[in-house]
């Protein structure tokens, strides 16, 4: 009786393991093919060339679109992480390998507070390596940050 019971228990354990393996396989399959979550923010982060500012940008359009005018949010802080508000900001850029600039003239259109700035008019008109330069002028001084993007 006990032996039988035991072997029944063993069968159950094996069945449970089997089920677990199957479930794992299904889950792995699901993970393998599921599209990436749609809401991830791509965050780029850099330090300006003289080290005055920490500069980040966010875009909620993923991947960064080609031939579509879209917006960024720039985040400017001191290296210690203090938000820098009321900065004068200029945006420029281009493709070093092709010797051409941006197809548009993007601008900061709004200071959002907490070191955040709305940048409108961003547009990229071909895939490849782009450089975006952000000129920043605030109480800490004038400095420039460069982002490298591969589209």
């Amino acid at each position: 009786m006990t032996t039988q019971k035991r072997s029944g228990g063993k069968g159950l354990v094996l069945a449970v393991i089997g089920l677990l393996v199957a479930a794992l396989a299904v889950y792995a399959g699901y993970r393998l093919f599921a599209p990436p979550p749609a809401t991830v923010d791509m965050t780029y982060n850099t330090v300006s060339s003289d080290g005055l500012y920490q500069v980040m940008f966010e875009t909620d359009t993923l991947p960064i679109p080609l031939n579509e005018t879209h917006s960024w949010v720039l985040i400017v802080t001191t290296p210690e992480g203090e938000p820098v508000n009321d900065a004068e900001i200029g945006i420029d850029g281009g493709m070093p390998a092709h010797g051409h600039g941006l197809p548009t003239e993007p601008k900061v259109t709004e200071g959002l507070g907490e070191g955040r700035y709305q940048v409108e008019g961003m547009r990229f008109n071909m895939g490849g390596h782009w450089e975006i330069r952000v000129g920043i002028n605030a109480a800490q001084g004038t400095d420039e940050a460069t982002f490298n993007l591969d589209l």
Binding site: F33, P36, T43, N45, T46, V47, S48, S49, F147, L149
Partner: peptide, 23 residues
């Protein structure tokens, strides 16, 4: 001296490259 720090890239989930290899 220009400190050109490469921007932190959005980490491409491993699963998509796996999926491609799988396909």
């Amino acid at each position: 001296m220009r400190a050109l720090l490469r921007g932190l890239r959005f980490r491409r989930p491993i699963r998509s490259s796996l999926a491609v290899a799988f396909l």
